[in-house]
Simulated assay, not measured.
Amino acid sequence: MTGPRSHRSAALLDPVSRAWWRTVGRRVDLEGEHAWLQAPTSSGSLVRDTWLAEEAERLGGHVSEGRADAGLVADLSELDGPGFTAGDLRPEVRDFYEHTAAWRMEVWTGWQPFFWPGGELVARLFGRRVGQLALPMRPLDVAHGMDSRVSVIADEHEVQLAAGWLRTLRSSGEYVFSGCYSHRRLPGADRPSVHVAFPLEQGNVQVFLRPEVGPDGSLVLESPAGAFGSDGCYVSVRHRGRAFAARAPVHERFHVYVDEEGVLRTDHHLSLWSARAVTLHYRLEPLVRPAASPGA
């Protein structure tokens, strides 16, 4: 049974969680040495899309809604460097990332039995309550699909600075993910990584994903284990004007590929330490765009 009282009780866990990450993390300087960890946060416990306007102001831009062809990355060639060339990707893969709003997704989810109880507990006490990182727990949760909205953060010349990717369950409208997508070069890295930040109250979860091109033109994005400052998952919290960050033992791998029938698909594996916890599979289809009217 859920309701306002149970939500208030669960909310008491939030400051405890932030205190834990302050304890296990390190003090960071977001304006200097650790500027690569600068990312949006939420001013309140309910996240959803509340962080967009504030992040646009921080970046000196504005939020642009309704772009039919908006993408998570304006141009994947911005990730080019030693070991990665966007031009080697299949056109469908590249089009999805550069024009994400023009694609529709269907998703299936499969939890490993050992991790399912913990995932369900986190979803109930945290994800659904705050409208963030609410991983689907059962196949029927996503039976009607997932809606996708891309909100571009652009500068005065309409150059894309970042993009908010907001995903909700089509059946209920509940938020599943609310992420800020951009690209960023980590300290000492030879090329940029995909940077995804999931805002939370007084903090965020950030994932740095290193891109690779598969032999079939597929895209692999991976956040492996490693040292502080390398690709991976980080939790950052703010407290009394100070910031703290720690690496989290969460590792992800995305494989975006075209199958033998010409359908674009994604396998998303999420692991804790070396144990796979959940797999999500996406089927991606281009939206049918209305034909241009005569004379247009």
Rank of each mutant, 00 (worst) to 15 (best):
G60C: 12
G60K: 11
G61H: 10
G61A: 08
G61V: 08
S64C: 04
E65G: 06
G66F: 09
A68F: 12
A68V: 11
A70T: 05
G71E: 05
V73M: 13
D75N: 13
S77C: 10
E78C: 14
L79P: 03
P82V: 15
T85Y: 01
V93T: 03
D95M: 07
D95L: 07
Y97R: 07
E98G: 15
E98I: 12
E98D: 07
H99N: 05
A101C: 05
V107P: 00
V107Q: 12
G110I: 00
W111R: 11
P113A: 14
F115M: 08
F115Q: 04
G119D: 00
V122T: 09
A123Q: 15
R124P: 02
R124T: 07
R124W: 12
L125Y: 05
G131S: 08
L135M: 15
M137I: 14
H144T: 01
D147P: 00
R149L: 06
R149K: 01
R149H: 08
E156V: 07
E156G: 11
E156R: 12
Q160A: 15
Q160L: 07
L161G: 15
A163K: 09
G164F: 01
L166Q: 10
L166N: 08
R170K: 13
E174F: 00
F177V: 10
S178A: 10
G179Q: 15
C180H: 13
R191W: 02
P192E: 03
